[in-house]
């Protein structure tokens, strides 16, 4: 089942193009990493998905038009922006009371269960909690909503490594059930790549890369060669070549591993390698186009 479907999604702010004709489909049950440099259009895309901003083009989320039907959509979609959006004056117990009062799919018992595992006090105000605790609280509230789609925008920004790890562990162990869809926009590629099922790179308002993690494993491989085999490897048309520690690292797409293995050492590229390739390529192309 399709969870998110967008065609030709375009958003401009004055002369700035935030989204430049985005086409993207996200199926239900996936954990998608939305990755891009600052100003790439990640937040604009999330805003379009969540009905926070009107866009040109077409977008359906859970079968609804987010801009026209945000309130209905939010019964089944949930959103955790960076750690600073819970109001500082809100008491923990009031947050639970309020969500229980207004959200038909919020489960108080689950929320209380999550909070019992933390050191967060019921009577505390958000403003008195540490950044990490606020993130724990917001995630606990979000995970207590029986939503079909959870959108996270830089949810661990500014948190230390301990809280970041806990955050994603909780998400995976206590929330994800293969039916829910999770979209995470973040800079911390290395930390989330093992929980993702799909990766989407956004740059210059466009989707420049969109593959499942399985596809990445089967379609992409990196070949590490020394100078002697370099020419032979280049003839196989790598999509990118870089030079590190006296070795050449060539990235191939859709090449038989057996064919490559004779030339050097093979390995599966990690997400940040691919990100560097796709996003920097695209960035120079986009910059060239504008100039």
């Amino acid at each position: 089942m399709r969870c998110i479907e967008a065609h030709g999604l375009t958003k401009t702010y004055g002369k700035t193009v935030a989204l430049n004709g985005i086409d993207v489909q996200i199926d239900a049950g996936r954990i998608v990493g939305l990755i891009g440099p600052n100003g790439a259009g990640k937040t604009s895309l999330l805003n379009a998905i969540l009905g926070l901003t009107p866009c040109e083009g077409e977008i359906r989320v859970l079968g609804l038009d987010p801009w026209a039907e945000r309130a209905t959509l939010m019964q089944d979609a949930c959103f955790v922006a960076d750690v600073a959006v819970l109001p500082r004056w809100l008491k923990v117990e009031n947050a639970i009371d309020y969500l229980d009062g207004v959200h038909p799919k919020f489960n108080r018992t689950i929320a209380e269960g999550f909070l019992a595992k933390t050191t967060i006090q019921r009577k505390s105000k958000v403003g008195d909690l540490s950044k990490g605790m606020v993130a724990q609280l917001h995630l606990a509230l979000a995970m207590s909503i029986d939503a079909k789609l959870l959108v996270l925008d830089e949810p661990t920004l500014g948190l230390d490594i301990l809280y970041r790890k806990q955050f994603y562990e909780a998400l995976l162990n206590d929330y994800y059930d293969k039916e829910r869809t999770i979209v995470v926009a973040t800079h911390h590629i290395d930390e989330i790549q093992y929980i993702l099922t799909d990766a989407i790179f956004v740059d210059g308002g466009r989707v420049v890369f969109n593959e499942s993690m399985d596809q990445i494993e089967t379609r992409y491989c990196e070949l590490i060669v020394n100078n002697e085999s370099l020419e032979a490897a280049r003839e196989l048309e790598p999509i990118h070549t870089r030079h590190t520690f006296g070795k050449h690292v060539l990235l191939f797409r859709d090449r038989e591993p057996e064919q490559l293995a004779t030339l050097g050492e093979l390995r599966t590229p990690n997400l940040s390698d691919l990100f560097m390739v796709y996003v920097s390529n695209q960035a120079s192309e986009v910059r060239g186009g504008r100039a």
């Binding site: 939010m74 600073a84 959006v85 969500l99 959200h103």
Partner: peptide, 20 residues
Amino acid sequence: GERRDRSILFWKSLPLSDRH
């Protein structure tokens, strides 16, 4: 205030319309 402290993003994540 809700725009200044960014909490509008939290309130808008709830199934409540702007009219509400």
